[in-house]
Amino acid sequence: MTFGPAFHAECLKIRTLRSLPGTLLALFAATTAFSAVAGADQGTGPQADPLFSALSGVLPGQIAAITFGALAVSGEYRGGALRVTLLSMPRRGLWFAAKAAAVAGHVLLVGLVTAGAAFAAGRAGLGAAARAITAAEAARAVAGCGIYLTLMALFATGLTAVLRSGVAALSILVPFVLVVSFVVGDSAGTVADLLPDRAGQAVLRSAYDGVLGPWPGLAVTALWTAGALLAGAWCVRRRDA
């Protein structure tokens, strides 16, 4: 058993379910729509960060990426599906790597397209305020946005493998990115900037007041994701299927 066929099989699994491509479509639609609205709405004001405004659709849109990452694995934990999977791919670590790679490939591709479209829609809404955004900043934010969405999806993938349930993983992650991180993030100082979602969002800002710059911030999110994936892989290898 080698990586190539396993990756091929996992990509095929994603494309042969209606719900998973549907979630990626939702990622694109929600992010772009919210960015367009936010751009038109928050373009002015003394503390406005036009770059972040243009891409702020990512905040609700990431829910779709997280859902995608969770759903891609949670199907394995229903009705003995994992047994069929492991019968065809008994090297569990390799299988889980192929699963994560398939999730990453799909989210990165859709995430980059989404980020580009969201930025264009947000900038159109901003009008004159958009002129403050430099081309380098824009390129960094769009690329970073695609990577950020990928990392969040993989974080959900790892957590779902640990909990063996998409519902359990989503009921932790969705309130976390919508509420906890939002509330704690405004009140607390440096610790909040190291939360998996807050850290990575630095890449979307032109002015970052936290302790981390855009790429170090994304690296912190990557560390969280790596931790979740390793924990997931460990559980997949250790447990009876």
Partner: peptide, 15 residues
């Protein structure tokens, strides 16, 4: 080796 274990294993939304 071919094995049949659980009939509920195939995902209901896949053909």
């Amino acid at each position: 080796v071919g094995a049949l274990l659980d009939t509920q294993a195939p995902h209901g939304s896949r053909t």
